[in-house]
Design a protein around this nucleic acid. Structure first.
Length: 798
DNA sequence: AGCACGCCGACT
DNA sequence: GTCGGCGTGCTC
């Protein structure tokens, strides 16, 4: 028996299956999808079995045997193995990367070099002996001081090198105390009256008959110690076992089950359409304005799916994956729900994943990578906020969760729901063409009116002599809310406001010496940091160029606004939410909870407050500058601005009190701003489509971004130029190739970056041509220290 | 990617 | 003479 193995080496020449002999004793056990340890050249690596067969094109007598089987149950099933192959083609990535992204990070291998003793200890030179006298091997990193000696011994053969392959986390085991369920038995046990500890514990036992409690929890709750527990256990009051345990971040027991809500007519219509298609691989685009009750439709269609004995995946953007959000699912589906999000430790994620693999849960709620949940009988996939760019992974494998969802829906014959208040142009265009079925919710579920949006022309403010960040009408509105004890949310677009140091005499902005980007001022550490390469230096007192002392610190965007706000309304209680104040685990939730409880009048924040903020007392939303996203050099700038404004406006007036929104802008007539005012999606779509058609961008054209990096500017420019010429010769006439040109950030970590953009409508040879380009790169440029990265359908081209 | 092999310069 | 620099080529 022969196994095809994809080994854990991400490099072009290795990116294909290697054949290995399956040892006799493993033949009954092996299955595709299991991980194996295999010899690969002079070392050992981890790999995935992708197929089993009886013959090989390779010389069978030279096949090496599998060294060790890492799993008893496959970690990937046939579906996911097939999906990885497709993903490799689709996204131009290594197959091993596609496989790795599908399993929890805890199962990914860690490699550690070791020196293993291969002769009697006495044969080693004296200084080496202490390293081996307790153990037969020593970790490479623990023996740095004696590398020279070890090298000699390696040559003599008294010591051999080896790689230790381990995974990060294993199954968690715990000591569980099972209290007997028989009160009689407990009462029959005699305890000496001076054994006070035991008496106390016995009382606890009597109150918790038949329960199983983890030993450490029991010790805390009952105020006892392990020996006491053991003494009672010996008398028959309890049994003690070591058991596998899930690291359950939260106990579900206190969550109250909640019934379905009554659907509105529009919701019902959408629900019926999906319900009728539960066994077809159809994609729906659910276009519902903010607050139109999309989630209730999700919940009820999931319920139908479960009734049919199938499973469901619910994807949400990472930032909306808040406790309130997941609570709604747990209220409906109880412990049939697994939640996967970045706040979990690797071990916790692994446990949630195991629940899915063992079919103990039926619903997964999670961010992007939850699309790989190893369900076998998938009945429904939902992507909420489908336009979010976080559904696309921005490093290899550069996959889009939407594409993966549609692939799985075809495999399982089940529908996909793409939900959004502001669909991506791609999806809406597909819905118009009939590729997706469009479902529309035009009204808010509780029939609240949309908030009133005022656009404030900041040029006018400036002309009237107002140079602050707050326009007169916004400032007035804020004061009004303070008087009425209502809440305000102020939204600051972080980009464009990042904090830098500027010399007011010569205009110098401090730059990173390794990257073409300005350094960011970090107040907490008093350092200037580069966000691209990690470089830092102390904050200067004088300008490094002209030695002037007139240097100005532009504080973090939100910090600066906070200071101005304090001048404007000194009496207001302000909560600030940005990367600085949410760095600690749980800080995000704490700030939101505090705001929800009315502990502050104003919440000031960046992107992260645009989503999921749902408090009845918010009646005012201020967007301090709508322009910052609008003028980014990216074809999606208008789309992103429209989405953001709609999203942010949706935070106001979600309950009984009507909401008001102020959008400040220097370009108040731009269609992305005027049309977002009344959430006129269709007209926005039409207008933006016209722009895209004129400039040849998605959805009219597909885009591929090819980026090159090299230490030397001329070299990388040369390679980019050769590539463009090669691509032009291979691709069809109608395909446009833009560039090569320097990337927006032309240098990162002392490497110059060049890119070109391929825009095409139909290009059947594209995958082949990209492979050929990789071949050229492999045979010539890679040796010279260049890198090449290919991004199919990038979300942004900056 | 990582590791071994192999061929040339500067040291004991 | 040997140690060690990194170019080249292979990995079932």
């Amino acid at each position: 028996m022969i196994a095809e193995v994809i080994v854990d080496v991400a490099a072009h020449p290795i990116d294909r299956p290697f054949d290995y002999a399956v040892p006799e004793e493993l033949q009954v056990l092996v299955e595709p999808g299991m991980r194996v340890k295999v010899p690969f050249g002079p070392r050992k690596v981890l790999g995935f079995i992708t197929a089993l067969k009886d013959t090989s094109d390779f010389d069978v007598s030279r096949l090496k045997p599998i060294h060790e089987l890492m799993d008893v149950v496959p970690v990937l099933n046939e579906e996911l193995l097939a999906m990885a192959k497709w993903m490799k083609k689709q996204t131009v990535c290594f197959e091993i990367d596609a496989l790795q992204v599908m399993i929890p990070s805890a199962l990914r291998a860690k490699y550690e070099k070791r020196f293993v003793l291969n002769a009697p200890l006495e044969e080693l030179p004296e200084p080496l002996q202490p390293y081996f006298d307790k153990r037969p091997s020593v970790r490479s990193q623990d023996a740095v001081e004696v590398y020279g000696l070890l090298k000699k011994e390696l040559e003599r053969g008294t010591v051999v090198a080896d790689t230790d392959i381990s995974q990060q986390t294993a199954v968690k085991k715990a000591r569980m105390i099972h209290i007997t369920d028989s009160l009689e038995k407990l009462e029959s046990i005699e305890i000496r009256s001076n054994a006070k500890q035991q008496v106390k514990l016995m009382a606890f036992f009597k109150n918790h008959l038949g329960k199983a409690i983890e030993s450490s929890v029991l010790q805390k709750e009952a105020g006892t110690t392990l020996p006491t527990i053991y003494s009672l256990a010996e008398k028959g009051a309890a049994e003690i076992h070591n058991e596998e345990l899930y690291r359950d971040p939260k106990l579900l027991s206190d969550i109250e089950k909640k019934p379905n809500l009554q659907l509105t007519e529009a919701q019902q219509a959408a629900y019926d359409a999906i319900d009728a298609a539960l066994n077809t691989p159809k994609t729906f685009l659910l276009h519902g304005i903010t607050g139109s009750g999309k989630t209730e439709i999700y919940l009820q269609t999931i319920e139908e799916t479960l009734k049919a004995g199938k499973e469901a995946i619910m994807l949400v953007p990472e930032i909306s994956l808040t406790p309130q959000m997941t609570l709604r699912f747990k209220e409906r589906f109880g412990d049939l729900v697994a939640v996967l999000h970045s706040g979990l430790s690797a071990g916790e994620k692994y446990d949630e994943w195991r629940k899915i693999q063992r079919a103990e849960v039926k619903v997964v709620v999670g961010a992007r990578s939850a699309i790989f949940a190893p369900f076998r009988n998938l009945g429904l996939i939902i992507l909420d906020e489908e336009h979010e760019s976080s559904y696309k992974q921005d490093d290899s494998p550069r996959y889009h969760a939407r594409d993966m969802a549609i692939w799985r829906s075809e495999y399982h014959n089940c529908p996909v729901i793409l939900g959004s208040a502001t669909p991506s142009l791609e999806s809406y265009a597909r819905a118009q063409k009939g590729v997706y079925e469009l479902l529309v919710l035009e009204k808010r579920a509780k029939n609240q009116p949309l908030p009133t949006v005022h656009i404030v022309d900041m040029r006018e403010e400036l002309r009237n002599g107002n140079r602050s960040m707050f326009s007169v009408p916004l400032a007035e509105a804020i004061r009004e809310r303070l008087d009425r004890k209502e809440q305000t949310v102020l939204f600051l677009n972080k980009r464009g406001y990042s904090s830098f140091v500027l010399c007011r005499d010569c205009g110098t902005v401090m730059q990173c010496p390794n990257c073409d980007i300005s350094l960011t001022y970090h107040r907490s550490s008093e350092l200037m940091k580069c966000h691209y390469c990690g470089y830092d230096e102390p904050v200067p007192h004088t300008c490094p160029e002209c030695e002037s002392e007139h240097i100005r610190f532009f504080g973090t965007g939100t910090q600066k606004v906070e200071e101005e706000l304090a001048k404007l309304v000194p009496e207001a209680r302000v909560l600030r939410m940005d990367v600085d104040t949410t760095r600690n685990k749980g800080a995000h939730e704490k700030i939101l909870a505090a705001f929800g409880e009315g502990k502050a009048d104003i919440l000031l924040g960046t992107q992260m407050i645009a989503k999921g903020l749902d408090f009845p007392n918010i009646t005012l939303v201020g967007v301090l500058s709508a322009d910052t996203t609008l003028h980014l050099p990216d074809f999606r700038a208008a789309e992103k601005t429209y989405q953001l404004l709609t999203q942010v406006s949706g935070r106001a007036g979600r309950d009984k009190l009507p909401g008001t929104v102020f959008v400040q802008s220097y370009t108040p007539d731009h269609y992305a701003i005027t049309l977002a005012k009344d959430q006129l999606y269709e007209p926005f779509f039409e207008q933006e489509m016209a722009m895209r058609r004129a400039s040849g961008y998605p959805p009219y054209y597909y885009v591929v971004n090819v980026q090159f990096t090299h230490e030397d500017l001329m070299t990388v420019a040369g390679y980019a130029d050769q590539s463009v010429r090669f691509l032009q010769s291979q691709l069809s006439q109608s395909t446009l190739i833009i560039g090569p040109s320097a990337s927006l950030i032309a240098r990162v970590n002392n490497r110059y970056r060049y890119q070109c953009l391929i825009k095409y409508k139909k290009e059947p040879k594209l995958a082949d041509v990209m492979q050929q380009l990789i071949k050229i790169y492999r045979s010539e440029w890679i040796k010279k220290g260049a890198t090449l990265s290919i991004d199919m359908n990038p979300t942004s081209v900056m």
